[in-house]
Design a protein around this nucleic acid. Structure first.
Lengths: 230, 230
DNA sequence: TAGTGGTCTAGACCACCCT
DNA sequence: GGGTGGTCTAGACCACTAC
């Protein structure tokens, strides 16, 4: 029932406003109340709507804030878009190289496999905001690194070139500074604070697929989380 | 159906292992399959389980990682516990004072109200790991600041002393350094990187209730997020 | 008291995976 | 083919809110 999500985003039901009751929505859309409830439950867990027993369901007034949250897909391009910028991706380096000891441990593969190393910059309106280094075993794709189109969001790359899909991601958030290398890439002064995200992408079989280390300029791009329980 | 969550945590269904089918769980627990599915859908969105159509439902093998995630309640005490430490809270300061211009804007109240300012330290095994400064209008509680028990997690404080409840929280994550003031409080060297979380707690009516600024020692306490879609 | 969301039942049919 | 999860229906009763 993605029509409901669309209506919320298109302000058919304005922020702070009340949605029709579950029963009337069910009738109007020609589905059962259970179906409507399943959709509403998802929106509520994302903080998009607020439900009050005995009263009604309301669109979150902070919709603009909530919309920049990390729900479902964590995707830097979408995040840049949600912050009101035009996203673009430029590849800094794309190569095959031996795996490091640390990486073979994290990816749970033999220390003699070859990995594809892909480093990229995400831009918001031509301004560099995130620097991302991804690594994955070469054997996971059927072609060589130079043949893949690296100007796509990571989810698209996986979908296009990988056999397996991504079922979940674990991200660790840390703080760090701009060093001399990042200074050039992100156009920021050495010593300024930066966020670092260490991500691991897993398959449905709980196997690690891809590693990622990202440096995130939080001054341009707000990193917001919404937690809702209701 | 919190019995299922309990079973997963108590390893009745071990990490990586398969759960009984939805139908057999429904029969065993004496509920309908719909009820089981509602519970499983919630666990899946938290990354606790992975469901495969035509195959079965599996407990996430990275359960230990996933368990330290931020699902449902964002609560520092729980987070410390999930990282394997004994949590405790000590109050640094508790006072009433005039509201600042910035705070009155963020809390959407008149610039002449009095606020309660509560600053506290969270410890993991007697080691300070998070410094939190909370601010809320004094008029929201029926007693004076000195009378409230500030050695509780924020959700307990709200539940005990506030009329309204918290429906959702928006957190902004930033990076910063240890300064001379934080050096003493967190026992870390000046200049080391730190995470800063700027939180706003909202009621069901979308009104901001409480502000919070937290300084988080990510070297001791991993800040992990799990994103799952399935 | 009427209407809302919260919880639940007992089915149905489909898509998909494994053997 | 047999079993699994994915989607959906058409009800029921309860708890709560607003008036």
């Amino acid at each position: 029932m993605s029509i409901l999500r669309q209506r919320i985003h298109e302000r058919v039901y304005p922020p702070g406003g009340r949605l029709p009751s579950e029963s009337s929505l069910a009738t109007e859309l020609g589905v059962s109340r259970t179906t409507v409830r399943t959709a509403l439950a998802r929106f509520a867990s994302e903080g998009l709507i607020l439900r009050k027993q005995g009263d009604g369901t309301y669109v979150n007034q902070r919709l603009d804030d909530v919309d920049t949250h990390f729900g479902g897909l964590w995707d830097f391009s979408r995040l840049i878009e949600a912050n009101g910028y035009q996203p673009s991706i430029r590849t800094v380096a794309l190569e095959e190289r031996p795996i490091s000891a640390e990486e073979s441990l994290a990816l749970e593969v033999n220390p003699d496999v070859t990995v594809v190393s892909m480093t990229r910059l995400f831009y918001a309106n031509e301004r560099p905001v995130i620097y991302v280094a991804n690594v994955f075993p070469q054997e996971l794709i059927s072609l060589s690194a130079s043949e893949l189109n690296s100007d796509l969001p990571i989810h698209n790359i996986v979908h296009t070139y990988f056999e397996a899909g991504i079922a979940f991601v674990i991200s660790e958030i840390e703080a760090t500074f701009v060093d001399s290398r990042l200074q050039e890439l992100l156009h920021k002064k050495v010593g300024q604070p930066l966020l670092r995200l260490k991500e691991t992408f897993y398959t449905q079989d709980h196997r690690p697929l891809i590693l990622g280390i990202s440096y995130y300029d939080f001054t341009t791009l707000k990193l917001r989380l919404v937690q809702a329980w209701g």
